[in-house]
Design a protein around this nucleic acid. Structure first.
Lengths: 216, 216
DNA sequence: ACCTGAACACCGTTCAAGT
DNA sequence: ACCTGAACACCGTTCAAGT
């Protein structure tokens, strides 16, 4: 366990789990269990009720008192940030996989769809990400260390292959896609997908639009 | 004054303002004044603090008791809806003007930028518009009667002129642009404008992307 | 008819008391 | 150390009392 500048407690995978040692360090087993349960519960609750779900619901689902939530996450936003962190890492990993398995342009297009689907699932996470809330100060660092370079690499590969235009900024595309998906409605599940496809089409260098490629 | 199915009270411009008549009808002068003040105050408060601003702030700015707000607008969302209605009408009027003064494609592109700027100013209004909240049930009617046909007409003109592709749905573009602008950040005021330009570029039939047309 | 503001319910957050 | 839940503050909404 170590504490980030943001005030979030994170598991330290390098230390072992003996409990008998009377020295300092090593988080109590119940604390560790509660933290894990909290993150898992929050992820599940956010998925069905959005990030505005009451903290009490998350505490109940995790089987802990509400005070415990605030011990691990000083503010409600910190919980959201922690869940977001986990998801961002998973998304970044996928980027490397796609780059290895597909052509530059397809990898870029596919990853944006993946990113879009991810954002759509956790409504409002992206909004929190790009809002000025001080609780999310630590998130952009992770975003820049993982998602941003992941996408930049995809863009550079596509540019090197001459597949996309050069007059757009990778970061803008990322937040644009996030915006697009944040408000996706339940009754039109693939609306976001189609809009992202359209946006991606706009990136293509010398795109031909006479065929309905990408838009079913 | 007449009451919509949604429960919102609206000014009836056709009736005159005599107060002495002891019959029924004719809203009391103070009630009318309060309603106007409320709409104006809400618009102003939403502009600076977003649609999540406390109802008490709006009541105070309008110089009325909080109970008066709820007399005119049964739910907080009804106030938002009423303000949104006004703004939608203004936006629809602008569409007709642009269609008369510009080439089909330019009118379409310019209006989307106008619409984008409008949505960006009142953060969250668009989100409310496309969320399933029952309080906004009356809004889509207005949206369909005014904004939708306004944009459809622009799209049809552009299609007739062979300026845009035919495999996209006008409604999807409207909500996509709204999504794009909802989360525009203060420190990057023209981010939304650039993204909309990119989206519009994707609509163009046989778009050439070698020049940086539309993206400064 | 319409206005007012105290009162209620709900939710984020704190903290004294426990183990 | 860490957990708990009663308690507090804030905000949406209601309603009895006023004019």
């Amino acid at each position: 366990m170590f504490r980030l500048a943001s005030g979030i407690w994170v598991k330290d995978k390098t230390q072992n789990q003996d409990e008998g040692s009377s020295h300092r360090r090593s988080p109590r087993a119940d604390a560790q269990r509660n933290l894990d349960a909290l993150l898992q519960a929050a992820k599940a609750v956010f998925a069905v009720a959005g990030v505005d779900a009451p903290v009490r619901d998350i505490a109940e689902r995790a089987g802990v008192g509400i005070g415990t939530v605030y011990r691990h996450f000083p503010q409600r936003a910190d919980l959201i940030a922690a869940v977001c962190r986990q998801e961002m890492d998973a998304c970044a990993d996928a980027a490397q996989r796609l780059a290895a398995e597909h052509e530059p342009f397809d990898a870029l297009a596919d990853w944006l769809q993946l990113y879009a689907g991810f954002v759509a699932t956790k409504r409002g996470l992206a909004k929190a990400l790009h809002s000025g809330d001080p609780a999310f100060e630590a998130l952009p660092a992770r975003f820049e260390q993982r998602l941003r370079p992941a996408f930049r690499a995809l863009v550079e590969s596509a540019r090197a292959a001459g597949a996309v235009r050069t007059d757009f900024d990778a970061d803008e595309i990322l937040s644009a896609v996030a915006s697009l998906c944040m408000s996706a409605r339940d009754d039109k599940p693939d609306h976001a997908r189609r809009m992202v496809a359209l946006l991606v089409d706009g990136l293509r260098h010398g795109a031909r639009s006479s065929t309905s490629d990408g838009l079913p």
